[in-house]
Structure formats: structure tokens, C-alpha cells
């Protein structure tokens, strides 16, 4: 299945801003962060199709996954 992965803030450094590629069916965001060498405790916000999700959320074909470190503003 195809997933679009978007990275933000420090996660982009040495990686990429966005990419769409094929993954095994049934994977979760945590599989993708592991593949990208992003430690779990550095993950601040996980969005799937613009909605907050957990790292063990089951991804579906065509999903957009957005990963942010813990950042904030105001």
C-alpha cells in the first residue's frame, strides 16, 4: 500500500520533507519512525490524514502520515 510520509522541524534534518512510497499492508506509524531512526520518545505529534493518532495506529492505503517532534509556539 502507498503512504505519504511528511516530516517537520528537526525531523527533516538529514532526512526529507515529504515522500510517497509503498509499504507492507498493516504497518503503523511506529514502523515508519523506526525505519527512519526517529526514537519514539522524540515523537511529539502524529497525524494521520490531519487527525491525531497514536504510534500504533493501523495505516491504510493512501494515508498521509505527518510526524512532528515536540514543538510549540503561540
Amino acid at each position: 500500500m502507498e503512504i505519504t510520509v511528511k516530516l517537520f522541524a528537526m525531523f527533516r534534518v538529514g532526512r526529507f520533507a515529504a515522500t510517497t512510497k509503498k509499504y507492507q499492508p498493516g504497518i503503523s506509524p511506529v514502523d515508519i519512525t523506526t525505519e527512519l531512526n526517529i526514537p519514539e520518545k522524540e515523537v511529539g505529534i502524529v497525524l494521520v490524514n490531519g487527525r491525531h493518532a497514536r504510534l500504533d495506529h493501523r495505516l491504510l492505503d493512501g494515508d498521509i502520515l505527518s510526524l512532528f517532534p515536540l514543538v510549540g509556539g503561540g
Partner: peptide, 13 residues
Amino acid sequence: GLPTYGTNVLVNI
């Protein structure tokens, strides 16, 4: 987060 990207990190979020 704030020192590196400022409050504007929120645009993409």
C-alpha cells in the same frame, strides 16, 4: 523547539 524555529513552527502543524 521554540529557540530553533520560533513560534512560526506552528504554520505547518
